[in-house]
Design a protein around this nucleic acid. Structure first.
Ligand SMILES: [Zn+2]
Ligand SMILES: [Zn+2]
Ligand SMILES: [Zn+2]
Ligand SMILES: [Zn+2]
Lengths: 142, 142
DNA sequence: ATCGCACACGTTATACCATCACGCAATAAT
DNA sequence: ATTATTGCGTGATGGTATAACGTGTGCGAT
């Protein structure tokens, strides 16, 4: 195999991973695995497992986040920092229930407080889910 | 109908609601809707919808929480016995990936910080999901 | 009384989400 | 060459959630 699908400064993605990531990057709302599959049929993807395998890797790379309250996925869109280091464990999401937009943010104090609680209780956190559901500013105005 | 909205009123439960709530109270781990269904076959419940309808009500009453990262449900078990009022919107959960135990807790500062972010961004939150996945103290020791 | 309405209930069918189990191919190490 | 690792493709299966329809009961208004 020669080609790499996109000249971006990311870890080397396989063809399937690049296709799935492209779908998520181009979307304006979270996509379910099956929606991604539908969009990629013309590119030769046919089975859910092809999507889920790619998503697993992309999540592991930190390029994609899974939204637990939606059973759906978004491309990482950190406010400032990039896809490495501390920010991974602490990302939070504000999901608009009207327009499906997702704002990704990090509140250091929130993560701090949760870590502090865990330490006190002897709990060893491996991952943290923080998701706000509600109305974004634009939809509130309308 | 009970006009009682929030404070220490355990609304009258219908038969199905009582059965589902009983199953959750008696469990030591979160239960999926279908697991509850299996447990209640002998009581005459036969279809998923009967479970989901009861769960919707119980969640609305604040007697049960849905764990988004597990697609499962637990009976409310607030730490200090404040089983009503303010604490509902801000509950957080620490879920052990080894023994499936769930600790429910509230960190006022966490809720505060998230509300503060929302206010700044013009986001109007309707509900908040905070779930920690990891190892509880007992399982860490073992 | 009986009509209308709200609400819980029961059932079937279907849609949507996720993984298992198998086998094959390409690559890297021994 | 043999083995280990990783990604890929496919069919089958299992788990989660709702749509659509119809029934029955309680209760206030007529
Ligand atoms: Zn991110
Ligand atoms: Zn919106
Ligand atoms: Zn609670
Ligand atoms: Zn444990």
């Amino acid at each position: 195999m020669s080609a790499d699908a996109a000249p971006h400064a990311k870890p080397d993605l396989t063809r399937n991973q690049a296709l799935v990531f492209g779908a998520l990057e181009g979307a304006e709302a979270p996509l379910s695995a099956y929606t991604i599959l539908d969009q990629l049929r013309d590119d030769g993807l046919r089975a859910p497992l092809q999507i889920y395998r790619a998503l697993d890797k992309l999540v592991a790379f930190g390029l994609v986040h899974r939204l637990e309250s939606l059973n759906a996925f978004v491309a990482c869109n950190h406010p400032a920092g990039e896809a490495d280091g501390e920010s991974h464990g602490t990302a939070a999401f504000a999901i608009c229930e009207n327009c499906d937009s997702v704002a990704e943010f990090t509140e250091q104090d929130v993560a701090e407080r949760l870590r502090s609680w865990a330490k006190t209780e002897g709990f060893e956190p491996h991952s943290t889910v923080i998701e706000l559901r509600g109305l974004c500013e634009a939809c509130r105005a309308a």
